[in-house]
Design a binder for these strands. Structure first.
Lengths: 216, 216
DNA sequence: GATTATTTATACATTGTGATACAAAGCACA
DNA sequence: TGTGCTTTGTATCACAATGTATAAATAATC
């Protein structure tokens, strides 16, 4: 090589594009499948076929974090999975709190997909006096006024918002106030959060509303 | 192209970027709020503040479809909302079918957010003999072998996948086979669909897995 | 051990998307 | 009617993201 690049793995000094970060979990998912299928090695082409992404795209994404592959061979499945999990912070578990224990909140806390991936819902909150005090899916529903306290006590890093739209922004504000930096929002609004807080929306209606464009 | 481009609203001759289409429902949502707050006029700046999008971005997005604003004034809220709904195909209702009536499917059919936006779930399917024949949320659960028939009879245009991951691809294939062109997928996989079929995934775990990168 | 097959990592080119800047158009009000 | 203020629509620019091409490294085969 003309350039003597001593690329430092995993502790990049310049910001990795958001789109890249969002693709990494897809890679992890496929690697996990490959791994449990007993495969030892995977090429960027095989990964790309599964995900409908060009091999070069995948190689470039990975190159932001280091050099993981072997030329002529591909990537060691177990090693790459481990590395990507570490990069994403998936080599540990995360505690979450749900606010809003109506229909949607109940569905979320009983969704069996979180725990196997290391996301554990440790606390549930609501404003309604009818719901506070109840036990739902093994969680004692507390008044939202106890949020900050619980966040500290239970080391909660993730907030999940399942309240109706007209209370969503204030709940989000309360989460931010309580020191939560990652929020998953199920309410159909465009929330405002300060710098340093990441928020992602889950909104099936929005998805449907953009799909109809193509079939109208 | 040599012809003088007399910009025809709403029936554009060149493809509108996907990202633009995905922002339009956000505009519709804010316009609806403004409208019910009694506002008559909105500027691209006001819209932008709500959505954290630059005003110029919004004006450019809208310009793909025509000229809707008045210089020095802004956009007529009701008119712009009507236009965008028409562009997106939201000036009518859409029938959907859910496949997979386990925990997730039940939550989806009882989610009250679809109907007000014109998305009506008209049919429910499952493979399990224990579930087929039951009535859930007013829907008679049918065997998936009847999918194609129902799609035609009930004019179903949207398929919603809520089966476990190991059956998801075959269900998606069956939907495509039945002539469905828009699919909302809740199963955690990267599905394969032919050209001409739009599929969107709802995957909270994926969202969480990319958020942890920023707090790890 | 030499030769051929692969496949990565990356330089380079192309495309896509978002931001900036401003002329033209409309409004308000004297 | 004229003047100043606002806001759109769009031309232009800047940069982010993706795709193409290839040298270097490894493995497999004879």
């Amino acid at each position: 090589m003309t350039t003597p690049n001593n690329t430092d793995s995993s502790s990049s000094e310049f910001p990795v594009p958001e789109v890249v970060i969002q693709r990494l979990p897809l890679y992890v998912r496929v690697l996990t499948q490959y791994s449990s299928a007993g495969e030892q090695v995977i090429s960027s082409e095989q990964l790309g076929i599964r995900l409908q992404i060009t091999p070069a795209q995948i190689r470039k994404d990975l190159s932001y974090f280091g050099r993981f592959g072997k030329q002529g061979r591909g990537y060691d499945v177990a090693m790459l999975e481990r590395q990507l999990r570490e990069i994403l912070g998936l080599d540990r578990t995360w505690n979450a709190a749900v606010v809003g224990m109506g229909r949607l909140g109940r569905a979320v806390v009983s969704y069996p997909g979180f725990a196997p991936e290391g996301f554990n819902i440790r606390a549930a909150f609501d404003t309604s006096e009818y719901i506070v005090g109840k036990t739902i899916s093994g969680l004692h529903v507390q008044s939202i006024s106890l949020l900050t306290e619980s966040v500290k006590e239970l080391d909660i890093k993730i907030g999940i918002v399942t309240v109706p739209i007209d209370h969503a922004q204030e709940v989000i504000d309360a989460m931010v106030q309580a020191g939560i930096k990652s929020i998953l929002n199920y309410a159909p609004l465009s929330p405002q959060v300060p710098e340093g807080v990441t928020i992602r929306g889950i909104d099936p209606v929005l998805s449907l509303q953009s799909m109809t464009y193509y079939i109208r």
